[in-house]
């Protein structure tokens, strides 16, 4: 083993070398860390996936009382054309009765249209009640067959294990008859 100069011999150089050592390995580490980002980010949704991140829905053919399911980002979205009774029922409910208190006005941009993500907030099943004749649960909204969560006509959780109301997707009304989700 060759003798490395140590102690007093290298003493005056120590400070500069230690500083250089720190700078060298730190810069290298920063570079390596920055290099990781493209690898991680490449696993995020690609441009073609993002381009389909919005869905426009024509509301014209949906009759009062009818509910339809559309697919947005691979997920089911329930669009409910609510009857006056359903709106009335949703609005009359006192907030104290709710597990996740939210007024109906905050859940529907236009009272006659309710747009919610059709995935039970409990464990991810798709609740029943969107098709005519299906079980709608005790509050006339949706009923999740997996673990028995009941949702009302505003998609709010009323009974069962689900912790939250049905989630709302971001949406805007492009016109009176077209809604853009996403």
């Amino acid at each position: 083993m060759a003798e490395a100069k140590t102690g007093a011999q290298a003493g005056e150089r120590t400070t500069r070398r230690d500083f250089l050592e720190l700078v060298a390995w730190t810069t290298l580490g920063v570079g390596a860390a920055a290099t990781l980002w493209p690898f991680i980010d490449s696993l995020n949704p690609a441009a073609d996936t993002l381009a389909l991140a919005t869905t426009e829905v024509d509301l014209e053919p949906i009759e009062v009382g009818q509910r339809v399911t559309v697919v947005w980002r691979g997920k089911p979205v329930f669009i409910s054309h609510r009857t006056p009774e359903e709106i009335e029922q949703a609005r009359a409910t006192p907030l104290e009765e709710l597990k996740d208190p939210e007024p109906d006005e905050a859940r529907a941009q236009r009272p006659e249209w309710l747009v919610v993500i059709g995935i039970c907030t409990h464990l991810g099943c798709v609740p029943a009640g969107n098709r005519a004749g299906e079980e709608r649960g005790g509050w006339g909204g949706w009923f999740c067959p997996c673990h028995g969560s009941h949702y009302d006509t505003a998609g709010r959780i009323r009974q069962g294990p689900a912790p939250r109301n049905l989630d709302l997707p971001p949406y805007t009304f492009v016109s009176d008859t077209v809604v853009r989700i996403g």
């Binding site: 060759a2 150089r13 060298a24 810069t27 570079g31």
Partner: peptide
């Protein structure tokens, strides 16, 4: 730009380390 800086630093660092021999 980044690599030129790193290369420079490691050039100096390498010389410094090897000057011990």
């Amino acid at each position: 730009l980044f690599m030129l800086v790193v290369t420079g630093i490691f050039y100096a660092y390498k010389r410094r380390i090897w000057s011990r021999l």
